[in-house]
Nucleic acid binder design. Structure first.
Length: 270
DNA sequence: AAAGACACCTGGGAGC
DNA sequence: TGCTCCCAGGTGTCTT
């Protein structure tokens, strides 16, 4: 489920329970995720102290003195903290057991997630080519215009490309294009600077608002049902094909773009 | 170089 | 009930 706001919400939820803790064990029940979990990961983290928990794009980075554990939640992954002795359910693939007696548990039915290692001072191939963070100043109208130049790809697929900007998944791509009044199929290179500027602002606005809401509805990452407190974003278009536009009441259109469900208002988006 | 198809997985819901 | 088919919040890699 995770798009960037969910990943950031997860980061904020787990960070207080991880920072400063020492790893006492790593239990891997299913090593076959998107990429195999490295055989030597236990050796890397055992008895090591977690210095900080950061996020880069949709990757969570648990920083250790010698490097970082990189966790990606894929399509269906989630993380939560449990008592280390709590029995694992079917899709609970990995436990990072902490000196506190708790474990950071990864559950991921579809196994598109990943748990990898990046040595200190190196840049993992999966992180090296990522575009800027959407909420940073380096993601701006000038940058996006430069990227879009002469590109014929549909703008929706373009902003979902993590080499252009990280963190814009299918739901938010739909929502953000609606807010910006841009048709999802419009060629990236044929959009005016003024409209790209609006798009940049909408991306920042929608994502930061979603993160805020995630923060306010944040539940227990400890115990309970283990479900992170995913926010309830009121969606304008995603999942609303054939329903009326919230602005003009025109029937929203649903198409497929790059094998992904795409919903837009034919009246509001040009 | 850029764009599109395909790949990796499981589960849930629709339709028969 | 049970089967088949399609869909799902990601994204790297292969093919044109």
């Amino acid at each position: 489920m995770p798009e960037l706001p969910e990943v950031e919400t997860t980061r904020r939820g787990i960070e207080p329970y991880l920072t400063g803790e020492t790893v006492v064990d790593l239990v891997v029940r299913q090593p076959k995720l998107r990429w195999p979990i490295p055989d030597d990961l236990l050796l890397k983290v055992k008895d090591q102290r977690i210095a900080s928990v950061e996020r880069r794009g949709k990757y969570l980075l648990l920083h250790f003195p010698a490097g970082a554990v990189m966790i990606h939640l894929g399509m269906s992954g989630s993380l939560y903290l449990v008592a280390a002795e709590q029995p694992a359910a079917y899709h609970d693939h990995v436990d990072l057991v902490l000196s506190s007696g708790r474990a950071l548990r990864l559950t991921d039915p579809r196994r598109f997630g990943s748990v990898l290692w990046q040595d200190k001072g190196t840049s993992h191939a999966l992180l090296a080519k990522l575009g800027p963070e959407p909420l940073s100043d380096s993601f701006n109208a000038i940058y996006l215009t430069q990227c879009c130049k002469a590109r014929k790809q549909a703008i929706k697929q373009f902003i979902m490309d993590s080499h252009v900007v990280v963190g814009v998944g299918n739901i938010y791509a739909n929502e953000v294009l609606f807010s910006a009044g841009i048709h999802p199929k419009r060629q990236a290179g044929k959009i005016s600077v003024a409209r790209l500027s609006i798009l940049v602002e909408e991306i920042k606005k929608v994502l930061s608002r979603a993160i805020e809401q995630g923060g306010t509805t944040l539940k227990d990452f400890v115990g309970g049902d283990g479900k992170p407190g995913y926010f309830k974003q009121e969606l304008q278009v995603y999942g609303r094909g054939d329903q009326p536009c919230t602005v003009c009441e025109t029937t929203l259109k649903e198409i497929r773009l790059g094998q992904r469900s795409t919903v837009y208002c034919p009246e509001c988006q040009r």
